[in-house]
Design a binder for these strands. Structure first.
Length: 346
DNA sequence: AACACGGGGGA
DNA sequence: TCCCCAGTGTT
């Protein structure tokens, strides 16, 4: 059966009409396409655009990325989330410099060997930058597939992703794989949406969508629920003396590794306990209960109570406010406190 | 196969 | 609130 042939032509015609001129779509530069694809992992287009522009301006080539210092790299990623993506990017850039003549490899199989590049990303780069016919299966595509084919497999399962990859290998347009993949994703994000009612009335391929024909579009895809988040209480101690603030780098192997933060204790501390902890080291001048905020990660939730503490002495943990703003990559959980201090001291 | 890993937007 | 997002690597 070649019913997908007609569907593809409807899909590509629609994509040609509505296609947004995103910064990474106006180039064939594999480096830029790679950077965009890594940034777009689990991250919305609108969130990526400013980060992408800034990143490319600062690190326009593979070589520049391979040599960038970590602090600058993470600062460019600050607020984007999933920080190991930035680390993988630099590691992969080094691999490209060392073993691929300073360029990105141009096949799906080789791309897959780079750190941070999985099946989706390898297929996206191979198809968009190098015109290789491989399906890029992301959350959007899984949803579109499940509806078009009335497939009730659990799309959260790895096995389903591999199945859909094999199936779409037969459907991807060999003459225009890059546009085919982007059209599928665009359809998933703009029409065949996951959060809310799918817009079947404006769908270019509704006529060949089995779910639509059977009225099943609202009950597909099937997706198992995520595990519940655990909750933690944190005490944030903002130590300062004359515009110098205490920060430290989070240790390796934990959440938000490489990022900086104020003193962060993983349980509730009473004021007296805080005094016993801080006074011997730094000498407390004044201690003030500050604001509290909740920061939600994908698998854990921090309930944070902050204190601002003016101290007598400092050590090499203390940095200037300007350093915090311009140089050090700060953990996202600190953002609201930083903004509040900013407001208070201005 | 399950889990860790961010942050924000929409309903 | 809950769900989702141009997912990947580790255990």
């Amino acid at each position: 059966m070649n019913s997908h042939i007609e569907r593809n032509s409807q899909l590509l015609a629609w994509y040609g009409d509505i296609k947004r001129l995103l910064p990474w779509r106006i180039t064939k530069d594999a480096y830029k396409i790679w950077i965009s694809e890594i940034m777009l992992q689990q991250t919305r287009v609108e969130a990526v655009i400013p980060y992408f522009e800034r990143f490319i301006t600062k690190l326009p080539t593979l070589e520049a990325l391979a040599m960038v210092d970590d602090e600058t790299l993470y600062k460019l990623w600050e607020g984007l989330g999933y920080y190991r993506r930035a680390r993988f990017l630099k590691e992969a850039a080094k691999v490209c410099m060392d073993t691929y003549n300073g360029r990105l490899p141009n096949t799906y199989k080789e791309l897959l060997t780079l750190p941070g590049v999985g099946m989706y990303t390898a297929a996206a780069i191979a198809s968009i930058a190098f015109d290789q016919a491989v399906p890029a299966v992301d959350g959007n595509v899984l949803r579109v597939y499940a509806r078009v084919h009335v497939c009730d497999f659990d799309i959260a399962k790895e096995k389903t992703k591999r199945f859909v990859f094999e199936e779409l290998q037969q459907e991807v347009d060999p003459n225009n794989p890059g546009d085919y993949n982007q059209a599928m994703m665009e359809l998933g994000s703009q029409v065949c949406i996951g959060n809310g009612t799918p817009r079947c009335n404006i769908c270019p391929i509704a006529s060949s969508c089995s779910a639509y024909k059977q009225g099943l579009q609202n009950s597909l895809p099937v997706k198992s629920k995520l595990k519940e988040r655990r909750k933690q209480n944190h005490t944030i101690l903002i130590l300062r003396k004359d515009h110098m603030y205490y920060v430290h780098k989070r240790t390796k192997g934990i959440l938000m590794e490489h990022m900086y933060e104020f003193m962060n204790i993983e349980h509730v501390l009473k004021k007296k306990e805080i005094e016993q902890l801080i006074d011997p080291m730094y000498g407390i001048v004044k201690i003030k209960k500050f604001t509290s905020h909740t920061h939600v990660y994908s698998h854990v939730e921090w309930n944070m109570q902050a204190y601002v503490i003016d101290v007598k002495q400092i050590d090499d943990h203390f940095v200037s406010w300007q350093m915090i703003q311009e140089k050090l990559p700060m953990a996202g959980a600190m953002k609201k406190f930083i903004q509040e201090i900013e407001k208070e001291t201005s």
